Amino acid sequence: MNILLSPFIYVFFLTSSTLMVISSSSFFSIWLGLELNILSFIPMMNFPSETKKAGEASIKYFLIQSIASSIILFSAIWFFLYNSSALMSFLNLMMTTALCTKLGLAPFHAWFPEVMEGLSWINSLILMTWQKISPMVTLSLFYNSTFILMLALTSALVGAISGLNQTSLRKILAFSSVSHMGWMLTMMSFNSSLWINYLLIYFFLSFISCISFWFFNLNFLSQLFFFKDSSVKTLVFLNLLSMGGMPPLLGFLAKMYGFLVISKSLPVLMVLIFSSLITLFFYTRICLSCFTLSQENSISTKVSFKKSNMVANSLLMILSVVGLVPICILVY
C-alpha cells in the first residue's frame, strides 16, 4: 500500500511546488518552490525502473540542479545585501545563467540529453514539460533581454543541429526540446506573453509523442523500421512532423505565434526559421526512411513491441485528430 501511494505523494509535491512558484510574491518562496520541485522529482525518476540508467540520470540531475540553485541563492543574497547598479547587472546575469541551466538551454544543455536517456517515457515527459514551468516563470520575472536573446538563438541552432545524427528517440526529443526552448525565450525577450501559448502547444505535442512511444515500447529509430501497423505508424510520424513545425499542423501554429512576435527583427527571425528547417529536415528524413525502406532490406534484429490494443490506438488517434485542427480551420 505504501509503495503504491508513494508516487502520488511525489506528484502532489511536484504539482504544489510549481503552483507555489507561479503564485509567489516573494523571492524566498520562489526559491523554496524550485527546491521542492527538484526534491519531489528525483524519487520519481527511480520509481518505474524501466531503464538501467535511472540512478545515474537522477544523480546527474541532482548535481546540475543543486549547483544552479546555489548560484540563484547566492546572487539573490548579494542582490539584497549590496543593492548597487553596477552589481545588479552582474547578479542578474548570474541568475539568468542559473535558470537557463535549469531549463537545459544551450550552451548549458549537455546534461539534458544524458538525463533523458536514462529515464522512462513518463518521466521524460515530465522533464520536458512540467519541469520547465517553474524556471520559465521565474525567468520571465527578471532577465537581461540581450543576454537571453543570445542564449535563445544559440539554443535554437544547437538543438536543431545536434539532433541530426541521433538514433535514440529520447535524445531526438531532448534536442528538439532545446530548440523549442530557444523559440520560447526569444518570444520572451521581445516582451511578449505569447510564449505561454507556445509552451502549451509544446506540452500537448510532447505528451502525444511520449505516450505513443511508451504505448508501443519504441526507444530507437531502428525499431520504427520493423513496426508493422501502418495506421499507427502514420499517426506517430504525423505527431513528429507537428513537433518539427510542418505546416499546417498544430506545431506550425506555435511557430506562427513566434512569427507574429519576431517579425520586426528580420535577422532573429531568419535564424529561427533556419533552425526550424533543420529540425523539420531530420523529422522528415525519419518519416521517409521508415515508409520507403522495406522490412526485408532492413538490418535483421529482434525488436520487442508491446501488443497494440484498441484503447491505446483509440487514444492516440483522438489526440492526433486534435493536432489536425489547424488543417480543418485552414480548409474551412
Rank of each mutant, 00 (worst) to 15 (best):
G33P: 03
K60Q: 07
I42E: 01
M20P: 12
G33Q: 02
E56H: 08
L36V: 06
F13D: 06
A54Q: 08
S6M: 15
S6L: 15
S66N: 07
I3L: 11
L39K: 00
Q65G: 01
L19G: 13
S6N: 12
N37L: 07
W31Q: 12
L4C: 14
L34G: 00
I67L: 05
W31D: 08
E35A: 05
F47A: 07
M45P: 01
L36S: 05
F12E: 09
L39F: 03
I42A: 04
G55T: 14
S6G: 09
Y61V: 03
S25C: 14
P48K: 06
A54N: 09
S25F: 15
S58M: 03
E50W: 09
Q65W: 00
E50P: 08
F28K: 08
S26D: 14
I67F: 02
S40R: 01
G55S: 11
L36G: 06
S66V: 04
L4Y: 15
K52N: 12
P43W: 03
I38N: 04
I30Y: 01
L32M: 06
E50G: 10
L19Q: 10
T15L: 15
F12C: 10
S66A: 09
S40K: 03
M44H: 00
A57N: 04
I30E: 07
M20H: 11
I3W: 07
S25K: 14
I67M: 02
N46M: 14
